[in-house]
Design a protein around this nucleic acid. Structure first.
Lengths: 134, 134
DNA sequence: ACGGTGCTTGACGTTGACGTCAACGTAACT
DNA sequence: AGTTACGTTGACGTCAACGTCAAGCACCGT
């Protein structure tokens, strides 16, 4: 009954527009660990989810090493309180970094918005001047 | 009268915690172009501002090549309408990228927040269970 | 005149994140 | 049996973003 959907290396590479080499590379770096059917890799839903996290992490500018670390934050699988505490601490650290990045991103956006308004204003002035010259 | 503050390469490297090598590298890549007093580099307020933009861009995950391009967006110095239009178009492209990144960043933050709440909830449950066992 | 400090320009080394072969296995089609 | 498609594991290449020397110039205090 439980239809467990799986993916080949090509399936994922096409869907996420990356090369198979990249997927093997991520595996080599310990970011993914798909099952094997003989020698071939077989990715499941969880692998796919992790891949999505990896790619988003990259787009946000994090290194594979960083990503590798916080990927575990999404795998709550053990039942030890100490582990959970450490997990929570690590999560807080990461949250701090993310919030700081959002701050900087917001600043950047605001500054660019200002620049654009200035250029727009200047363009309008030129337009009015041209109109007046008619 | 106009006290124009300047900085040596060491001044900036200390202030921003980067090596002189990095500053020379950025110059080599066309991101900075400080004046020279003889052979020595002499950075002014504008150079310092650009450097701050560069470093923030890096923290947001952009490449030096990307940063180099949009650095010019902050240098409105010519008086051509066509140039201004192009500038505005480029700015809009960059704004789109920034907004998209903010979206992804927000998603990431929300997901992590959820994960943390789950772990916290689990820790609380453990606490209650331990209490009940007393 | 001498040593120290800080700067300069090459030139080569390094690390991360893959790309690009080469050489081979395997399953499917015809 | 041959070819086509898709997969595999090395091994080496590449590009960005610097680090790390080496060798040398310029001023400064003693």
């Amino acid at each position: 009954m439980s239809e467990t959907k799986t993916y080949s290396i090509r399936d994922l590479s096409l869907e996420y527009d990356i090369t198979p080499r990249t997927l093997r590379f991520y595996e080599d770096k310990g970011l993914l660990s798909p099952l094997r059917r003989g020698t071939q890799r077989i990715y499941d839903r969880r692998d796919k989810g992790r891949l999505a996290l990896i790619l988003r992490g990259k787009r946000l500018g994090f290194s594979l090493a960083e990503i590798r670390n916080w990927l575990d934050l999404y795998d709550v699988r053990d039942g030890q309180v100490a582990q959970a505490r450490m997990l929570l601490d690590a999560s807080e650290d990461r949250m701090t970094a993310l919030l700081l990045q959002r701050e900087e991103l917001n600043e950047t956006i605001e500054e660019l918005k200002l620049q654009m308004q200035q250029v727009e204003g200047w363009l309008d002035d030129q337009g009015l001047a041209a109109e007046a010259a008619d």
